[in-house]
Amino acid sequence: MQLRLDLQFFAGEKTEKATPKKRQDERKKGKVAKSQDVNTAILLLLSFIILFVFGGYMKNIMTTLFQHTFTEYIHWDLTPNTVYQVFIEGTIETAKLVAPIMLVAIIAGFASNLMQIGFLFTTEPLKLDLKKIDPIQGAKRIFSIRALVELLKSLFKIVFIGAITFSTIWIFKDDMMMTAFKDTESSLAFFGQTTMIMGFAAIIALLFLSVFDYTYQRYDFEKNMRMSKQDVKDEYKNIEGDPLIKSKIKERQRQMAMSRMMSEVPNADVVITNPTHFAIAIKYDEEKSSAPYVLAKGVDHLAFRIKEIAKAHEVVTVENRPLARSLYDKVEIGDTIPEEFYQAVAEVLAYVYRLDKKVK
């Protein structure tokens, strides 16, 4: 009894790597190994590159909007038309300001996911699943080992990125104090430069951390994807079919093929026998084939059935031990006989045709 329980335990233990079918099925459900840190790092990197390249263009839009606001809009009367015009113009200018960053954010999202998991489109995660709102399952997810690991990772990232940001500010603290004595243009340039330095430093750190996070996500994904030996067996049965059912199907197919073969015996010109162990039904039809071909063949009990059917339908039976054995071994049902048997089979057919003329 204890041995049986041990075997069941080991059979249920997930020790096997996931099969390609399971990987494909899970991928269709949207379950893949990916790191959000990679997405975040690439998004921030491209966003800061856009800020660096188009910073002057964005600054001009902002300053123009402020100048227009405090030189023209401030003198307008407050009416529905003026409010509508200010709203439209402000929206257009804001769209010009935000459009490059939004476009890059979309590109970064696609690029980071393609790098990790390739192209994947599925609506499976959007389907209603009551398990997702199950409070018991939710509590298990909140207090799981994975949740604890994610919490520690988040705290570590906050401390790590915060330390880099604080260090950058500390390095430029003296220059930051001196901005009080500089004009607006110089102050904006200084804060823009400092922000870019902090941003790229944080991005480099986040990219460094994302490598480890992606490695962990791959490891955790592979661990959760493992299968037990019983799972592998069940999957094989689902793909290939139950062996018992398969054997029954094959038996049924064999019986059907046997029935078709037996139905062809009455159409034979001759049945060549051993005489007891082998029986080969031969047919020669110039319209179908240039050489005689085998309609049916059998050994022992099957040979006896072929001879019985031939006798019932007055098909001539000829005894030729070596020819019957050779034809059974070398020619399949429906195939024409090889050239090496032409003469022997021709003699048999000639004898049959002569016999048929005498009978007629």
Score class of each variant (00 low, 15 high):
residue 235 E to G: 02
residue 235 E to R: 09
residue 235 E to D: 07
residue 236 Y to H: 13
residue 236 Y to E: 14
residue 236 Y to Q: 13
residue 236 Y to F: 14
residue 237 K to I: 12
residue 237 K to V: 10
residue 237 K to L: 15
residue 238 N to W: 13
residue 238 N to L: 14
residue 238 N to I: 12
residue 239 I to H: 10
residue 239 I to G: 02
residue 239 I to P: 00
residue 240 E to K: 07
residue 240 E to Q: 12
residue 240 E to N: 05
residue 241 G to Y: 10
residue 241 G to Q: 07
residue 241 G to W: 02
residue 242 D to C: 00
residue 243 P to L: 04
residue 243 P to H: 04
residue 244 L to C: 07
residue 244 L to M: 15
residue 245 I to V: 15
residue 245 I to S: 09
residue 246 K to E: 01
residue 246 K to Q: 03
residue 247 S to Y: 06
residue 247 S to D: 10
residue 248 K to R: 15
residue 248 K to N: 14
residue 249 I to C: 08
residue 249 I to T: 00
residue 249 I to Y: 02
residue 250 K to D: 13
residue 250 K to M: 11
residue 251 E to H: 04
residue 251 E to D: 12
residue 252 R to L: 15
residue 252 R to C: 04
residue 252 R to D: 14
residue 253 Q to F: 11
residue 253 Q to A: 14
residue 253 Q to K: 14
residue 254 R to D: 13
residue 254 R to V: 09
residue 254 R to K: 11
residue 254 R to Y: 12
residue 255 Q to T: 08
residue 255 Q to V: 01
residue 255 Q to R: 15
residue 256 M to R: 14
residue 256 M to P: 00
residue 256 M to A: 10
residue 256 M to V: 15
residue 256 M to T: 11
residue 257 A to Y: 07
residue 257 A to E: 02
residue 257 A to M: 13
residue 258 M to S: 03
residue 258 M to C: 00
residue 259 S to D: 14
residue 259 S to G: 10
residue 259 S to P: 00
residue 260 R to C: 02
residue 260 R to W: 01
residue 260 R to E: 09
residue 260 R to A: 06
residue 261 M to P: 11
residue 261 M to S: 07
residue 262 M to H: 04
residue 263 S to H: 13
residue 263 S to A: 15
residue 263 S to I: 08
residue 263 S to P: 13
residue 264 E to K: 01
residue 264 E to V: 03
residue 264 E to Q: 09
residue 264 E to L: 09
residue 264 E to M: 07
residue 265 V to G: 00
residue 265 V to I: 13
residue 266 P to F: 04
residue 266 P to C: 07
residue 266 P to N: 08
residue 266 P to M: 09
residue 267 N to I: 01
residue 267 N to H: 04
residue 267 N to C: 00
residue 268 A to L: 06
residue 268 A to M: 03
residue 268 A to I: 11
residue 269 D to S: 00
residue 269 D to F: 00
residue 270 V to Q: 11
residue 270 V to M: 05
residue 270 V to Y: 14
residue 270 V to P: 12
residue 271 V to W: 04
residue 271 V to A: 00
residue 271 V to S: 04
residue 272 I to K: 11
residue 272 I to P: 06
residue 273 T to Q: 05
residue 273 T to K: 03
residue 273 T to N: 03
residue 273 T to Y: 10
residue 274 N to F: 01
residue 274 N to S: 03
residue 274 N to H: 03
residue 274 N to Y: 10
residue 274 N to M: 03
residue 275 P to S: 04
residue 275 P to Q: 06
residue 275 P to N: 10
residue 276 T to M: 11
residue 276 T to F: 13
residue 276 T to S: 05
residue 276 T to G: 03
